[in-house]
Write a protein that binds this DNA or RNA. Structure first.
Lengths: 219, 219, 219, 219
DNA sequence: GATGAATGAGCCTTCATTCAT
DNA sequence: TATGAATGAAGGCTCATTCAT
């Protein structure tokens, strides 16, 4: 699936959040906004350029989004939930336990899953990372979603494996940070630092997970 | 040493790059610019606010820095070299081998060192990270400094330990990324994500290095 | 016809060059710009004063003209062609020969015609003369229009009368300069040097042409 | 004599008006100001560029000239008198009658004289012509000097020749304008319109005067 | 709903001028 | 006398936003 296609898909998903009421124009606006924001940053972008690239009159943007910030949030905010969606499945723990024979298999599965997600939405994720420090609204959302929802669920998992003696006895926060850092580092390297350099995804992911597992394993 | 003091120190170091010729006003301007840029981002900051916070007329800024971008670069650009300074010491390898009995000790030392550096300059580093994606000049510098200088030196080290059989046989790039991710993840967590939450530095650093060593060790 | 009216007429002519699409506001802007530029010179005028006199927000100017210089050129540039229009009629020579029994009659006719033109557009012509030395674009246009188009056509005429023995044998360039100087001198005197002093147009023009004819005649 | 030399000479003459008290710096300032004003026009020039070209601190200009306008006037104003100096000699009429057998000879002499003057000072004259329309002070001076002093003296001469029957009976104003236009037109052509094109000065001047004489002569 | 002309606050930058050294 | 750092008003221009059509 091409990048263009993936952005389109994302926009369609957004549209459904708005009860599926999204005009052709509105679609073009979001598409253009993602483009421009990710190229120049939120503050460095002008609504007039977005309008131009969207092939839409300047005023049209403000018919759909009260302000420029509104436009930003309407793009970035829903992305946050999508990003962590797999971790907050209702039956997350069950899925995990019933589907994956080992923790390592679980890590691999979730990594491949998020890798594909990031690949599809890297522009919006770039915008999100850039703007979290400056948008209190995004900060709050981030803290609540990651800090509370995801962290707590993952903690439970880690505790579980610690109690089974498979993982060393260190604070869950540290262990989770270690895992997250390694995996995010992998994604960052290939999507941000060296986006043009080809890589053997499967191999590198397996290696990374191996390093993580070795690091935390009690054996 | 207070944060304020550390920023002052940094500015003094900058001053020395300019042959020590730095006015009182120029000093105040940089100080204010660091403040404002890190709070609002480069594009979101106005020179008039910087002038105001510096207690200086707006025109004064432009007597010392031809443009707003000039001001940004004169703050961020020198920081890049400082950030990687320890890795590009002329006698880096010797220092490493003669002073540190084990690789682990070396990691610990360099981690503590960079931790203190980041603590002192976190505002400027924040600005740097925010602006690298949008400032070609910074991008080039970053690629050259990190990508070439630092990466090559560290590779040598890692190869060395691989050949001694202490580290597993995986591509150096992967191993370095793994190490860097874990350590940067630690810094990011405490300086960016949760800057207000207290933590036991020594303990967490030791733990993190332990996880890294376990991950890469051949034992 | 009052001066005000003549400026309005000129602006309407400009409008037609733009496919007749000219807002009320745009009209006011040009009107004010002509006023201010001719009073204070291009560099000495501020867009804010133009906006004020036009009863328009400053931003409105820049919606219609990308830059201040654009505004200047859009006023002055079309004037150049109008100024020399009579000389570059397709059938210029025929008109001349069939309508005017003598060269003197022709001179008189063209002088009266241009006199009325200058009277109507003296403000814009003043701006044009002031700015030609500083605007390469205008310089180029001037050289091409006058230097090439007009000069060549008039040369042909003069050669014609020289060959008929009515005009003395001197380089056409000199003769044309002599004619132009005398006539432009007349206009300059009454429109620039002494704009408030009344004069007998017909008489002075006839006299001037007489002086010119005497000067060049072979008799 | 090179152009550079002539500007220097002019500045020295200016210096003498100030009781010869002109420092090296002051000299450089005027030199630079003439250069810059003539290149970019008064309003388009900045005192900082003048200071820079003069190799002088910005403040130094204002030690010698209270304002930028002061600097302009101190350059242009004295030039006006110089320009018309030959016409206002105390014994102008005597000189004329005793030295020049015919009116034509007189015209030739004065033309050659002013030609050399304009050649030497064309930059300052350009500034003068550009600024007269915008500087009331210069306007007043111009009107008084030309309009009163020069015009009256020349009128007397013309009347004299009219009474001798050598010149046709037309208003002196018209005749003078005719003469002045032709001669100024000649200068303007070669110093302003086509400064780079070589010309046979003596020949063109003689031709022009011949045209003028033919025009006005009673024969 | 869509347009795009209009707005006016605000932006970065320049400039003539001042004044302590 | 000469300097040049400092000033702050003003300049040209951009921008998010509004609103009549």
């Amino acid at each position: 699936m091409s990048q263009q296609d993936s952005v389109e898909q994302w926009i369609h998903e957004l549209a459904q959040l708005d009860d599926g009421k999204m005009t052709e124009k509105q679609f073009k606006i979001i598409e253009a906004a993602v483009e421009v924001f990710s190229e120049k940053g939120y503050a460095g972008s002008s609504t007039s350029e977005i309008a131009q690239r969207a092939g839409v009159a300047e005023g049209t943007i403000f018919r759909h989004y009260k302000t420029k910030k509104d436009l930003l949030l309407s793009i970035v905010s829903p992305m946050m939930s999508k990003l962590i969606a797999p971790f907050v499945l209702n039956n997350f723990k069950e899925v995990l336990e019933s589907n994956y024979p080992s923790f390592e298999d679980f890590l691999y599965a979730i990594m491949m899953n998020r890798l594909n997600f990031v690949r599809k939405h890297h522009k919006i994720i770039k915008i999100m990372l850039q703007e979290i420090p400056f948008q209190p609204h995004l900060q709050a959302e981030f803290k609540q979603q990651i800090g509370t929802q995801v962290f707590q669920r993952l903690s439970t998992i880690v505790e579980h494996f610690k109690s089974k003696g498979e993982i060393i006895e260190r604070p869950s926060q540290e262990l989770l940070r270690f895992m997250a850092s390694s995996m995010i580092g992998l994604l960052a390297t290939h999507f941000i630092l060296m986006p043009d350099q080809p890589w053997d995804e499967e191999q590198e992911i397996r290696d990374t997970i191996r390093l993580i597992m070795n690091g935390m394993s009690t054996k």
